[in-house]
Design a protein around this nucleic acid. Structure first.
Lengths: 140, 140
DNA sequence: AAAGAAATTGTAATAGTTACAAATTTAAAA
DNA sequence: TTTTAAATTTGTAACTATTACAATTTCTTT
C-alpha cells in the first residue's frame, strides 16, 4: 500500500512531510528519535522544521499510526510497528531491539476487571545486547 | 530495619540527605519524581539542593536500592520497591499504580539464550485508572 | 586539631520539548 | 478561475528536566 493511503487508513491527512516521516518510520525499524528523523529528512526536505516532526509524530500516535516508546530516559523513540511486541534497550550501545511479546490476554482481563482500562501495553527489557556482549569478550 | 542500616545493606554510605530521600521513597509509594521528593524534603532540610536529589537517586539505582521508571515521558519516576511488579500510568490523573507482575522466568531464559542479557524488566500499562473512570461517568 | 576524602550545594550550561505567531500551502466557495 | 477560509508548516522563543562543575561544607582519619 502506498504511504499516502496508509496514512488515510489511519485517518491522517497526507502531506509531503507526513508521508516522508511515515516512510522513514516504516523503512527504518531502528525506533528513531525525533532528532534522528529530523536529521535524516533534512536532506530531502530542506525546509523541514523540527516542530513539524514533533507535531506529526504526536498526530500519528493520536491516530494509532505509530507508537511512542519511553524505554530510554534520555529521549522518546517512535515505532511505526504498532503491533504488540517487546523492546530491549542495550545499555551499552543504546540500540533498541524488537523481541516477541508476552501474551497478555489473561492479564488484561484481570486488570480490566479491577477497573484499570488498559489502552497501552509496554514490555521493556534493558541489559546488554548480543553484539555488545560479544565485543566485550574480545577485550578480555 | 532502620533506614541507616537499610542503606548500608545496599552498600550506600548513609547521610542525612540520603536517609531522608530513602525514607521518602519507602514511605510514599507514589513513585515520586525528583521534583516531588525535592519539594517534600525542603521543609525538613532547608539547604537541600536539587542536584543532591539527582545524585542520590542515581546512586540508589546503581546500588539496587531503588528503581527508575520511564513510564511517563514527561519525567523520570523512582520506586523504592525493587521487587518485580508492573506499573500502570493513568493518562488522566498521571498517577502511577502498582500491579502484580507477569511471570517472566521462561521468557528470560529464552532471551538470554538468544544473547540478550536482561538486567531490568519493565512492565508498563497506560490507560484510565478506576478513580478517573468513575469520575468520568459522573459527568455524563 | 589538621589534613584529606567524600558529600553537598549553587550556578550555569545543555538537551529535549512545547508554545505560539507568522508564513505557507491546501481546500472550498463564489 | 479568483477569492476566501482552513489547515499545515515553519522559526523563534520559552520552558522543563537534567547534567557539569567548581566551591563549599561535612565527615574521617591521623
Amino acid at each position: 500500500m502506498k504511504t499516502y493511503d496508509y496514512l488515510l487508513s489511519y485517518g491522517v491527512k497526507p502531506s509531503v512531510q507526513r508521508i516522508a516521516i511515515m516512510d522513514y518510520l516504516l523503512e527504518h525499524r531502528t525506533h528513531p528519535s525525533i532528532e534522528e528523523i529530523y536529521l535524516a529528512l533534512c536532506d530531502d526536505i530542506p525546509t523541514l522544521s523540527k516542530t513539524t516532526v514533533y507535531n506529526t509524530l504526536k498526530l500519528f500516535v493520536e491516530h494509532g499510526a505509530a507508537q511512542m516508546l519511553t524505554i530510554d530516559e534520555r529521549n522518546v523513540n517512535y515505532d511505526g510497528d504498532v503491533s504488540l511486541h517487546a523492546h530491549f534497550l542495550c545499555k551499552k550501545c543504546n540500540k533498541i531491539y524488537d523481541l516477541p511479546a508476552a501474551h497478555e490476554e489473561d492479564r488484561m482481563e484481570q486488570f480490566n476487571m479491577n477497573g484499570f482500562a488498559v489502552q497501552e501495553i509496554h514490555q521493556y527489557y534493558k541489559g546488554i545486547c548480543p553484539m555488545c556482549a560479544a565485543s566485550k569478550e574480545e577485550l578480555s
